[in-house]
Simulated assay, not measured.
Amino acid sequence: MSVADLAGTQEDGLFDAVVQHWAKARIDNPLQVASRLDDSARQLIAVGGILEGLLIAVFTFGKAIDNPPSDYVIAAFLSLLVMSACAAITIYTQTKDLGAFPIYQMLRQPGPTRLKSLDREVKDWCDTLGKVVALKRGWLTAAFTAFIVSLAAICACTLRMLH
């Protein structure tokens, strides 16, 4: 028996439960994705801070102080700063409107109108959350790209110092 077969039978309660569970899972998923993107951005910021500290320590306390910072070190610092900025924007990106007032207005409406309003509000909220997740994913991709560039610059700088 498929889920579609449950509609219009004595098992309407089961059908309603399946629909409610599916809807909850579909609504919760974008929130979990946004949370994981924020966590990834926080980890990039922490790793970037450690790398910046190590670069400063190497050039301040190591033998590298005799050599002026090369183009690779400047590239590493700049890309780590860009990475931190993009990761911070990832965390900062949130929905502009929590939708509290439209929900309040919807709850004040009579029954049949309320259902149409609920449908519209859920669709608008899902669309907004989808856009926020896409923005977060884009900023995190930019942060990760800058992180890779900084690692390449640090490796090049390390190889240059060894020779």
Rank of each mutant, 00 (worst) to 15 (best):
residue 135 L to G: 12
residue 53 G to H: 10
residue 122 V to H: 10
residue 130 G to V: 06
residue 109 Q to L: 05
residue 53 G to L: 04
residue 159 L to Y: 08
residue 48 G to T: 15
residue 91 I to M: 14
residue 145 T to S: 02
residue 140 L to Y: 06
residue 90 T to D: 10
residue 9 T to N: 00
residue 97 D to K: 07
residue 126 C to E: 06
residue 68 P to M: 05
residue 19 V to W: 03
residue 20 Q to G: 13
residue 23 A to Y: 01
residue 29 N to C: 09
residue 84 S to A: 07
residue 6 L to M: 04
residue 22 W to A: 03
residue 151 L to V: 10
residue 68 P to I: 03
residue 97 D to F: 06
residue 115 L to K: 15
residue 42 R to I: 11
residue 21 H to V: 07
residue 156 A to S: 11
residue 55 L to G: 15
residue 110 P to Q: 12
residue 55 L to P: 13
residue 44 L to T: 09
residue 2 S to K: 13
residue 125 W to S: 15
residue 104 Y to T: 14
residue 14 L to V: 05
residue 71 D to K: 07
residue 17 A to W: 03
residue 134 A to K: 14
residue 79 S to C: 06
residue 161 M to T: 11
residue 30 P to S: 07
residue 123 K to P: 01
residue 97 D to M: 02
residue 114 R to S: 05
residue 147 F to E: 01
residue 109 Q to W: 04
residue 27 I to P: 05
residue 156 A to D: 09
residue 122 V to T: 15
residue 10 Q to T: 02
residue 136 K to D: 05
residue 26 R to M: 01
residue 84 S to H: 06
residue 46 A to I: 13
residue 52 E to W: 14
residue 104 Y to F: 15
residue 149 V to R: 00
residue 32 Q to G: 01
residue 17 A to M: 03
residue 73 V to H: 14
residue 74 I to V: 08
residue 2 S to A: 10
residue 88 A to C: 07
residue 11 E to Y: 13
residue 43 Q to W: 07
residue 38 D to W: 00
residue 76 A to N: 11
residue 128 T to C: 13
residue 85 A to G: 04
residue 29 N to L: 10
residue 35 S to N: 11
residue 57 A to D: 12
residue 33 V to Q: 09
residue 16 D to W: 14
residue 156 A to C: 14
residue 89 I to C: 12
residue 124 D to R: 07
residue 73 V to D: 12
residue 57 A to Q: 12
residue 77 F to W: 14
residue 7 A to D: 15
residue 139 W to R: 09
residue 133 V to Y: 03
residue 38 D to C: 03
residue 18 V to F: 01
residue 64 A to F: 00
residue 111 G to F: 08
residue 111 G to P: 13
residue 7 A to K: 15
residue 123 K to G: 03
residue 19 V to Q: 02
residue 53 G to S: 08
residue 52 E to P: 10
residue 141 T to H: 12
residue 85 A to Q: 05
residue 158 T to P: 04
residue 26 R to S: 09
residue 114 R to A: 06
residue 145 T to N: 07
residue 127 D to E: 07
residue 159 L to H: 04
residue 108 R to S: 03
residue 98 L to E: 08
residue 157 C to W: 00
residue 21 H to G: 00
residue 140 L to W: 11
residue 154 I to M: 14
residue 58 V to N: 07
residue 4 A to D: 05
residue 66 D to F: 06
residue 30 P to K: 03
residue 76 A to Q: 11
residue 55 L to R: 12
residue 97 D to H: 00
residue 127 D to I: 09
residue 111 G to K: 10
residue 33 V to C: 08
residue 43 Q to I: 02
residue 58 V to F: 03
residue 17 A to P: 09
residue 103 I to H: 13
residue 105 Q to T: 12
residue 107 L to E: 08
residue 40 S to V: 12
residue 145 T to I: 00
residue 2 S to T: 15
residue 110 P to T: 11
